[in-house]
Write a protein that binds this DNA or RNA. Structure first.
Lengths: 140, 140
DNA sequence: ACGCATCGAATGCAAGCGCATTTAATCTTG
DNA sequence: CAAGATTAAATGCGCTTGCATTCGATGCGT
């Protein structure tokens, strides 16, 4: 309560009032939810893929030969290792990706973008960018 | 590809290069994941509540008489209506909250913070703020 | 006052998530 | 070189989520 007064009287202090931290966090939450929901809806409706799946495809498309190690995917998608594993399994089931054995380290795998996967990514990209442009700057 | 060159040669243009939108989105994703994971871990480990549950308790604690309409909760937690309903059910099961009939509009409910609920919120609050302070400014 | 659209909330259901564990391959150390 | 530690990935499990639907209550137009 008196924190709101301090803010009103002294103006926004750029340091790190508890009040300010909470406001920044709520802003981050709202912003994230808005963009994520829009992306999820548009990508799902128009191309049948989720946000995480798109991020995975994007990493692959920007990689050499459309291939990358399974672990690199895990780092990118902000998901647990198990969830990332199942994400690859889904993409494979959908024919967007293939899993190939890694010769040098036979524990690991390579995830490789198929032609169909590359096409789906290219198709989805404008939808993705458009949703970003619409929602990322909408509420400033 | 030429987008990266444009960025390197012309410098960051503050308008809305596609490249810039994507970078801003990835930053938002990373930031959200970092803070959310830390909050979720700390709140769960030390107080047995999730981030959404904490947000709900915080709304209630800041409301008059610790009561608010079910729909107000839905708006705050960035969850679907059904998920919010189950969230209240969980909180009720845990004894942190009670559902009471709303007399004026008997479709709706009031969600009321119990004494135990208020205590759990007060206990969790420092943990929450501490995690925010640690993660929200950590990676600038 | 009646019937119909709308609203607030709850619930069946399938899918996705994280945690913990498992399996197999690789690295380390004595 | 053998045994234990470590790593990459997959999987069983319980929980949470969103979508679609349902149910009762309310508001509105005629």
């Amino acid at each position: 309560m008196h924190q709101m007064l301090a803010h009103a009287i002294l103006g926004p202090m750029i340091g790190g009032t508890e009040q300010e931290l909470v406001e920044e966090w709520h802003g981050l939450l709202a912003r994230h939810a808005a963009v994520h929901n829009a992306l999820e809806h548009d990508l799902q409706a128009q191309h049948g893929i989720s946000v995480s799946e798109f991020e995975a495809l994007e990493l692959l498309a920007s990689s050499d030969h459309g291939k990358c190690r399974g672990q690199d995917l895990t780092n990118v998608v902000h998901l647990s290792q198990s969830a990332a594993s199942r994400l690859v399994a889904r993409l494979e089931r959908g024919g967007l990706v293939e899993r190939v054995m890694c010769d040098l380290d036979r524990r690991g795998i390579f995830v490789v973008l198929t032609d169909e996967g590359h096409k789906r990514y290219s198709d989805a990209k404008p939808t993705h960018r458009s949703a970003l442009a619409r929602t990322l700057r909408a509420d400033d």
